[in-house]
Design a protein around this nucleic acid. Sequence first.
DNA 1: CTTGCGACTGACCGGTTGGTCGGTAGAATG
DNA 2: CATTCTACCGACCAACCGGTCAGTCGCAAG
Lengths: 205, 205
Amino acid sequence: MARAAARIPLGKETESSDRVLQILSESARLFAASGYDGTSMRDIALACGISKSLLYHHFADKDEIFARIALGATRELYHFVHERLPEGAPPSARIRAFMTATGDYFQRYRWAWLASTASFWNDPEARRQKERMMWRDRYEGLIRTLISEAIEAGEIRPVDVALAVRLVLSSLNWMHRWHKPDKSMNPVQIADSYFEMIFNGLKQN
Amino acid sequence: MARAAARIPLGKETESSDRVLQILSESARLFAASGYDGTSMRDIALACGISKSLLYHHFADKDEIFARIALGATRELYHFVHERLPEGAPPSARIRAFMTATGDYFQRYRWAWLASTASFWNDPEARRQKERMMWRDRYEGLIRTLISEAIEAGEIRPVDVALAVRLVLSSLNWMHRWHKPDKSMNPVQIADSYFEMIFNGLKQN
DNA sequence: CTTGCGACTGACCGGTTGGTCGGTAGAATG
DNA sequence: CATTCTACCGACCAACCGGTCAGTCGCAAG
């Protein structure tokens, strides 16, 4: 239980009981597999081996469970990647680190990541997602800054920064749609290969 | 109604009444906005201004409506792109055409595309999706062949073909997660820029 | 005029959903 | 012993889900 719960990225400041961590962990797995709508509170309770009522003792409603997973996954992604950017290194090396760190995060917190992105769609009620979007913007701000710096430093061509950002993020974010954990290449190696291809280009010189 | 229905890609052989086209069109819009589970048959009937029963007069069940949209979108994507590959042109030019044609298809059939990709997740019942996957594989086979040919022709470096395919498809497939139709750049221009960046690389030479 | 047929409707069905409520067991506190 | 608090459960609810069904309407063929 504790091992599974460890796969849920949580801020160090927030203390949660084993039970709460178990609920979050099982919910992430179910949300990832079946989506938000496709996962019922009964499913979650059954997976945890507890009654449905107990879920409402620890959480206000279904949305709070999901929001906690999604917010945690997004916030910690920022911190995780930010901490792994080598200080003082040239921008291109930091871009590479940004990409491989994201791949690393993806394989560590696979269920939480999948859960938070699988149900990105149907969230018209943006109030609860506001803080999550803030961290997402900070995360995207990292790569935007790095690419701008790389252009200033003359390491990469003066391309459209916004589009280059989208290209990098697309390659990383689309991985969860096709990558299976038992593949020969892990997400870090894939992210590294992506960087090489994007940076050097496919063209034969 | 007919104009909206025209946004639904259907094979030329299938003849459908206006009513059926209207149902497909409205359903695509709703599925795109709220996902499969988030769209009820009542929602669809209300959007069409008809009774819920009438939906079952024209379609066997909810799944058939979705399957028809998703299968049509996937099958026609293959044909659309395949027809737009310039014969006899060098592989790199054909890769570029593959990408811009996909962007073009995306902006033409936005709702159907969004509907079919938004609910990619929760489809464990693969029987009905089998034909759809066949067309998806053919579509992906196009770009795989083109990249292999480009390597043989010496136009691009001998990179990992599977990964290069994923990189190209990621950039195109992730577009629907961030692109809004009112943006200054349209999907064709974006796809063209992606090709340029991927082909030539970001590195300053 | 009658028959048949496709388009169409409203009332209804069993099942599932997210969520509520009254209550219990047990450990800690006084 | 009495009180309080937290973790926990089973029974229950209104609302909504996908889907069914008997029947209505207008129109075209005999």
